[in-house]
């Protein structure tokens, strides 16, 4: 992540590519958020992907795991707002259902 930021803990904005090259930074950032959210779980969290210029399988997996972790804490979690290119990558890689919080049905 070149930059990372958040509006608040229930509306997390990612800024920068979610790719293998940056996955360590992204993990550290999301782990922080996860810990904070576990202390005072909100009913729902949204991850905003509008400022993510690119995503790969590794980045998708981490985001999916983060969202699943939140769901495990009974927090409704989803990721959306991605641009066309990123959205197509997510669809191609098969992560759309996990990001939307739907049970995947191949």
């Amino acid at each position: 992540m070149t930059k990372k930021g958040f509006v608040n803990d229930v509306n997390i904005t990612l800024d920068g590519a979610c790719t293998m090259e940056r996955v360590t930074d992204l993990h550290a950032f999301l782990a922080e958020r996860c810990a904070a959210l576990a202390e005072t779980p909100p009913s729902a969290v949204r991850v905003d992907l509008a400022r993510v210029p690119g995503i790969d399988a590794c980045g998708c997996q981490l985001l999916a795991l983060f969202l699943e972790q939140l769901r495990h804490l009974s927090i409704g979690a989803s990721a959306d707002g991605a641009g066309t290119e990123v959205r197509e990558s997510i669809e191609l890689l098969g992560f759309s259902s996990l990001f939307a919080g739907e049970h995947p049905q191949p």
Partner: peptide, 28 residues
């Protein structure tokens, strides 16, 4: 073409190695 990614496990997020692949893909 249909593709679905599934997480094979749900490890502790903080201790997870983000470069490790735990995803399983299913295609139809």
């Amino acid at each position: 073409f249909r593709c679905e990614a599934r997480l094979a496990e749900l490890p502790d997020f903080a201790g997870f190695d983000p470069e490790c692949c735990i995803t399983r893909w299913e295609f139809a």
